[in-house]
């Protein structure tokens, strides 16, 4: 193998690209879909599973709609989009409390691993306007590990919220 002496320039370049990759995977893993190698799985958020009612039906929308919950579901490692994955969504909205069964609904991801659920406007509860999302292994043949998310809206007047799953194969 060629072992060229390491100059300051190659060291800087290597360092810069390493930071770039770290930022790209780290930040995009949190906020946006990514297809990088070694994509880390999304951990369950604290309080994510609160008021979860397992087994809500797959619905076209929750209640009257007007608010959009969107996101993606990717496989950890290779970042492949996962199709047909059941994501359950619930929140305190203008139409009901988190614990009300009618506040819950599930949807399936498309071929790009994207899900979109229309639901009533989320309103602040317990100090923050937030939603809940679940990937529950028990309703997916235990293909991946269960993950609960609890994203917070930037403000109560927002009319959409997104959350992204990177699932670790079980």
């Amino acid at each position: 193998m060629n072992s060229a002496p390491q100059t300051r320039r190659t060291l800087l370049m290597a360092g810069t690209s390493a930071v770039g990759v770290a930022l790209a995977t780290g930040v995009s893993g949190l906020f946006a879909p990514a297809r990088a190698q070694g994509l880390a799985p999304t951990p369950t958020m604290r309080g994510g599973a609160n008021n979860y009612l397992p087994g809500a039906p797959v619905v076209e929308r929750i209640g009257g709609g007007g608010f959009w919950m969107t996101g993606t579901v990717l496989r950890a490692g290779d970042g492949a989009p996962l199709q047909g994955v059941r994501i359950q969504i619930w929140a305190h909205t203008t139409e009901g409390h988190e614990r009300d069964p009618e506040s819950h609904g599930a949807t399936l991801t498309d071929a790009d691993g994207v899900f979109r659920m229309e639901m009533p406007q989320i309103v602040p509860t317990f100090g923050q306007p937030h939603g809940h999302l679940a990937y529950d292994a028990d309703f997916d043949g235990k293909r991946f590990e269960t993950v609960f998310l609890r994203p917070v809206m930037r403000g109560a007047s927002e009319t959409s919220l997104s959350a992204h799953f990177v699932l670790r194969p079980a």
Partner: peptide, 23 residues
């Protein structure tokens, strides 16, 4: 009253494992 409204959120708060620092 908060406990009756949403027990898991209050239990999280009392055990200092809530996602919201204000709890």
């Amino acid at each position: 009253g908060l406990w009756l409204t949403s027990p898991p959120d209050v239990i999280d708060a009392l055990l200092f494992r809530s996602p919201t620092p204000f709890s």
